[in-house]
Design a protein around this nucleic acid. Structure first.
Lengths: 144, 144
DNA sequence: CAATAGGTTTAGCCAATGCTAAACTTGTGC
DNA sequence: GCACAAGTTTAGCATTGGCTAAACCTATTG
């Protein structure tokens, strides 16, 4: 069987990157939910499951199920048939998400991208930028 | 029951963004696999399942299962116990991924980000940038 | 040319994230 | 103060993407 190993170092680094992406994906969903809940509380005074479902474009039942997981993770609290609240950790995560989101979106706009696209792309990108990249984006914005 | 609707337009757009992200995620995995397979073919002359598994940081069995799906999607072909080939569509997807990847990575480097971080972040970001954003990045690189 | 080491596949499991349809609360309005 | 509409939750299902352990090929080598 062919068994060559030309550049052993690179493979490991690459696989680490892929691992991180997979890990990101699990927290990504949680961040999206939590961020949205924070927005709803600020905007309307309360976060209802059905509103979350509508804004996220998923079914009601999906939100219920996810809320259980977020509750287990200690990010939200909720009584049946009541609206959703964030825990301290939940707020922290929401704030962090908003911070990243703002930087990325502002950065894309500064790059000359349309508002529409900046909104959509930043939503996707925000979960995949390291602190180093965020710092570089902030630097760019300051220098601009 | 509370039934307020203050800004009906925004919600729909947001949910569209989230929908796109979810849709991206399914193709994302496929793109990562296909891109890696293309790299292996170019680099070593053939793409073996176990090599894909190692580089992706995933178990062998996972690759086998995923290959079946990619085969159903018409992106790869493979005989049992043989190495993996890309179809025309597979090559097209791989080339597209590489193109995006290159632009994003070069862009991050131009922004002053370390090689290590640029590699990792670009891997995550490449699947979430629109053509408009790619064009802006390319423009930035040209103007630099 | 047969044994065997080592790479591949199968089988069976798990968790996450969605869905629809049915059952269940709640709060309003009569 | 009860009925009912509308909002919530449960139940049950599907798919994706991962894992381990066991079964299975293949090609090298003695």
């Amino acid at each position: 069987m062919p068994q060559r190993a030309k550049r052993p170092g690179t493979a490991k680094i690459r696989s680490a990157a892929f691992r991180r992406i997979r890990a990101d994906h699990s927290s990504e969903l949680a961040e999206d939910y939590v961020e949205l809940i924070a927005d709803l509380i600020d905007e309307k005074g309360e976060a209802r499951g059905s509103e979350v479902a509508m804004r996220l474009g998923v079914a009601n039942a999906t939100v219920v199920k996810t809320m259980k997981r977020l509750q287990d993770m200690g990010l939200v609290t909720q009584e049946p048939y009541r609206s959703i609240f964030l825990t301290g950790d939940g707020w922290k995560m929401a704030e962090d998400g908003r911070r990243k989101h703002k930087i990325v979106e502002a950065f894309l706009l500064a790059l000359g991208i349309s508002e529409e696209t900046a909104r959509i792309d930043s939503e996707g990108i925000e979960h995949h930028v390291s602190e180093e990249t965020l710092r570089a984006m902030a630097r760019f914005l300051a220098r601009k």
